[in-house]
Design a binder for these strands. Structure first.
Length: 471
RNA sequence: GGCGGCAUAGCCAAGUGGUAAGGCAGAGGUCUGCAAAACCUCUAUCCCCCAGUUCGAAUCUGGGUGCCGCCUCCA
């Protein structure tokens, strides 16, 4: 089997993936700031890194996966005061909603899901250590990171410090309030002072709150250690968020913060970034009203994670139609009773082997889920074309197994009728209809079919009688 | 202004030197009382434009054009 290669933002190249310690993989993904409902963009982040950690486990790595929740932030505070509730209440509310969305989308819970407010002590200690090491300074209750003290600043975002200073100078004019506190306009806050009436904590520099960038550095250090294998997140975090994390952590520890920096691209609408600030987003809650979790997941995984996805209802619908073929082929895994009596044929075993190789090849190549999914479709064709029941069963189990590596539930939602009574009623009606058909009373038969269609039940006449599915 | 990315059929989307995966839609067919579904078959002489390197390029180089992201909170 080929080796895993990943695109590392830090080097700008695809590199072979070699964890620091043998089989152990330490992975951290930046999660959401919980001040509003999660949208399709958050779903992409969660699903992409969910698949990466699932796959790494699948090939045998001992993975510790951490995804944080930012629950202290200016936006949370602002939003809470608009709503007249406490920031804690607001963030807790949206944390629960995020968890609910994740569960619906079949995103596995991370091994650790730290919330920033649980690690304030570590953040204060981190900041103090940076001050002691000469990498940070206090100014009127704020603490700033001294960018000039970290010579590699800009290496992740490929930013030139002089250019940044030019840009920052313009910013500084607009934000004079802070400018006088910083040694350099590009210095960023580790700790921000706050009024005691606001959300905050006591620190050696007075009452205040941690800076956003510091949160991740402190939590990574506390939970995973000084050097981790994979640090992941949305591409908008490359600069400045991850750049600043690197500056803080590497200035303090003198060693790489992460071996591989992986970034997912965005979901766009009309070729424009989907974002709360632009008001063009689709919430996960909303989408789940119309589309199945598998449809949403497949839609996201059909594109490579580093390419933008242009979201349209039409393309989601197209994905939903396509997934039916996968589900039908997978259904052979459970149908048939005495299927295990015969061993799969050599041809079927060979097909399965080829499939597994192609699947691994795709995933090993920077998690190319688009290719992996196309292999799923080809396997599905192989299943429907194979006349042998035992082969179908064997291949369908392979299909299911690998679909689940991608986090697809493969639950066929089409037979969802509210109750057993309802199902039995429909079965009864269809029995009556088939009697009508036997009498060549097609007017009655068509009336029944039309009426059932109207209430969302599709009737399909086949050689073995009629079957139905609820849509 | 600086940095980075993308441009492949009607739509979505893989492919980074060897002659265009896959999905949706479309066409034809099988089945059927009809329909739907299912299943089978077909569907880009060509990969934004120009020039170059090469036996050979969608893939590499140079130059254009268009679009997007980051540089400010953002997955």
């Amino acid at each position: 089997m080929s080796k895993i290669h990943v695109f590392n933002t830090l080097s700008g190249k695809k590199e072979e993936f070699i964890p620091l310690q043998g089989n152990v993989v330490k992975m951290y993904a930046c999660g959401p700031t919980v001040y509003d409902l999660s949208h399709l963009g958050h779903a992409r982040m969660a699903i992409v890194w969910d698949v990466v950690q699932r796959y790494l486990r699948f090939v045998g790595y001992d993975v510790t996966y951490v995804r944080n929740i930012t629950d202290v932030d200016d936006k949370i505070i602002r939003r809470a005061s608009e709503l007249g509730i406490t920031p804690e209440k607001l963030s807790r509310q949206y944390t629960y909603k995020f968890w609910h969305d994740m569960q619906k989308l079949n995103v596995e819970s991370p091994d650790f899901e730290p919330r920033a407010t649980e690690f304030i002590a570590q953040m204060i200690a981190f900041t103090q250590a940076l001050i002691d090491g000469g990498h940070a300074y206090e100014a009127e209750g704020d603490v700033y990171f001294d960018v000039a003290s970290f010579k590699e600043y800009g290496k992740l975002g490929k930013q030139n410090l002089e250019q940044l200073l030019v840009g920052a100078r313009d910013q500084a004019v607009a934000q004079e309030t802070l400018a006088h506190l910083k040694k350099s306009p590009v210095d960023f806050a580790l700790w921000k002072s706050a009024d005691v009436s606001e959300l905050g904590w006591h620190s050696p520099w007075g009452y205040g709150r941690p800076g956003w960038h510091l949160e991740c550095s402190a939590m990574v250090k506390r939970i995973l250690g000084e050097t981790i294998d994979i640090h992941a997140g949305g591409e908008d975090l490359v600069f400045p968020h991850h750049e600043n994390e690197i500056a803080q952590s590497e200035a303090l520890h003198g060693q790489p913060m992460a071996r591989y920096w992986l970034h997912n691209s965005f979901v766009q609408t009309n070729s424009e970034k989907m974002a709360k600030s632009l008001g063009n987003f689709k919430t996960i809650q909303d989408l789940l009203k119309t589309f199945s979790p598998d449809t949403i997941r497949l839609f996201i995984l059909q594109s490579h994670y580093r390419n933008p996805i242009d979201f349209t209802i039409e393309s989601l619908q197209a994905t939903g139609t396509g997934i039916q073929r996968l589900l039908r082929a997978a259904a052979f895994a459970t149908s048939g009773d005495d299927v295990d009596a015969e061993a799969p044929s050599a041809a079927a075993q060979s097909l399965a082997e080829t499939f597994k190789q192609e699947f691994a090849e795709a995933m090993n190549n920077d998690f190319n889920t688009a290719i992996a999914i196309s292999q799923l479709y080809q396997l599905a064709d192989g299943i429907t074309q194979n006349p042998s029941v035992s082969d179908k069963h064997y291949l369908a189990n392979t299909l299911l197994h690998y679909a689940k590596v991608l986090g697809l539930t493969m639950v066929d939602t089409r037979k969802n009728i509210d109750s057993e009574t309802g199902s039995k009623l429909i079965d009864l009606i269809l029995t009556l209809r088939s009697e009508a058909r036997a009498r060549k009373d097609y007017a009655s038969a068509d009336l029944i079919r039309k009426t059932l269609t109207e209430i969302g039940v599709n009737v399909m006449d086949g050689p073995q009688g009629a079957t139905w599915e609820s849509v």
